[in-house]
Design a protein around this nucleic acid. Sequence first.
DNA 1: TGCTATTAAGTTAACGTTAACTTACCCAAC
DNA 2: GTTGGGTAAGTTAACGTTAACTTAATAGCA
Lengths: 350, 350
Amino acid sequence: MAKKKPTTLSDIAATIGVAPMTVSRVVNRTGYVSAETRQKVLNAVKEMNYRPNGLARNLKRQRTETVGLVIGDISNPYSTELANAVRETLSVRGYSLFICISEHSAKEDITAFESLVDHNVDGLIVATRSNSEGDTHLREIVESHVPVVVVGRDFSHDEVDSISADNFTGGFEATQHLIDLGHERIGFIGAAFADRDNLKRLQGYLKALESHGIKIDERLITGRRHEVSEIPGYSTERMGYEGMKRLLALPNRPTAVFARNDFTAVGAMTAIKEAALSIPDDIAIVGFDDIPLAVHTVPPLTTVRQPMRIQGQLAAEMLLCRISGDEGLKRTERTLDCELIIRGSTVANN
Amino acid sequence: MAKKKPTTLSDIAATIGVAPMTVSRVVNRTGYVSAETRQKVLNAVKEMNYRPNGLARNLKRQRTETVGLVIGDISNPYSTELANAVRETLSVRGYSLFICISEHSAKEDITAFESLVDHNVDGLIVATRSNSEGDTHLREIVESHVPVVVVGRDFSHDEVDSISADNFTGGFEATQHLIDLGHERIGFIGAAFADRDNLKRLQGYLKALESHGIKIDERLITGRRHEVSEIPGYSTERMGYEGMKRLLALPNRPTAVFARNDFTAVGAMTAIKEAALSIPDDIAIVGFDDIPLAVHTVPPLTTVRQPMRIQGQLAAEMLLCRISGDEGLKRTERTLDCELIIRGSTVANN
DNA sequence: TGCTATTAAGTTAACGTTAACTTACCCAAC
DNA sequence: GTTGGGTAAGTTAACGTTAACTTAATAGCA
């Protein structure tokens, strides 16, 4: 059987003997149509199983009421919360959301951008980690007048708004907390080699040590050597596990560690327990993100919470503002406060 | 400043004095164009920052080379793996993937279907839990000749392929494993009220008990009373925690529990530990999904692994087959084997 | 009666592309 | 020198909608 092609407005119009425009009016509930004609049209629509062709409609209307979101690390609950907050905010305004995943490489970023832009989304929210190739491409997209907002990543452009949590201060406070508890040998887990320059959490960690006059020991900073982009998000428990193993093997092992995120922290906790050490007595540990699981680890994980819902809401609102507003809006940059959540992994009876 | 509208093929054509078709040929690398003209066009394209309008192109071409995926429970790593496998399989064939989340309600399902169909995706993969309202709508979509494949959920229609893990046997084997270890009072955690009839894992559990002549005690089957659909996926740790609390409060508490998924299991473990009981000595526990975290719980979680990557690949392949093939293909149904992974939460020195 | 307002349509053209067809030229081969 | 195949374009129309305009009939009112 050959592929049947779908019913069009004109098909309907032809069968009941009216102009296509009349059918369009019924379908869109605009203009004047008599009750009688309306009913005839509606019957035919139902009978012939008509669905409007979105491509044609959007082409004519010159907008799609659709926004694209590009995320990596999709399995991290914090990405989920972001996506949900974005979607909810958009849906109130009648926009729908398409998500593309780019978990591994710049090439995937570019493919994601392309397919969203190809579908004429009205705007783009980008929440993947930045990389030069992808950024170049993104810049081109911005230049072609597609509104863009970035979340939790670097990207500076006059017409691109940026939202992120204050990862630097978060990292600083996490480390500060450990220092306050008397720790001096504090490890960092999960810095990939390429991250050194743009991982704010790591920089906060370094700054905290420095401002307390603690000398930085490079051996305490661990992570994979290869590109971050090769590692799917949810496997970072392994990253944490391996990183911690390496720290534990040091002649003078740390008494506390700060992990780049909660998954990494969970992996590190496993390594610590395998070494039959106690948390937090032998080694205290702080994570980042406050995933729902964090209260369920043993002991519960001290971590830094970042307000993902608010980031999502803001991103959606700013994008809608850019979509409906004039061009040439000045860049807005919002940095949201994080909150240190102290639990049993750093303070014993907590 | 007013919104500038984007450059079109004809704009380019006009500026360099050729026909739009010639520009189209250059952009699409088809037909004959002299090297000289090609270069002129390419220069203009770059200079005027031209991007093809996907809507117009797809409208003309009558296909979008795009597939839509609707998932709920997006934060579950198993969803992530599904999405990734689908995307990878599609991208080999030049298709791109748009994901819509529907985590809470039938209304969201419908919105997701609508926005994907409105964008004329060439096909749809649906992996949300089924519900009657959404299913009715989905049926309409199928009737209008959009290829659909469902993953891990019920939906019977002549032209809709279906992939799922063998949740029934998985549930059966998980329970069987507990029975083999000598348990007789075995709880089930995470059955929402509406699930009774369509949660295969629960049915496997019931069947296993029955076939060993163990009487079913309704009080051992716990879960929320309200609709599953109200609960975002990642909060099910709480569901597990609360369910376990209730089981522990029973006069004759179970000696083992089977949790509907690993998140639920993790929550349950927390409740067990809070009650100062030992796993697996006082209470053994089995989960489902084998999320990466499962090896990191204390003790590591016995669970049932389902082959998500393969499900994703198969779904994508079957959909592509439906997209390019004739209509009227007979329904294919594939059920994939699960694998029981035994760890320390059921067998002590494991 | 004439004039405007309202209702109920139909007509035209355009959104930006591209498939299919046509034109025109050049050069080689019989 | 005619035929014909390859090359380099241009022309036309259509994909399915809808904005903007036009037409026509009816209704309301001074």
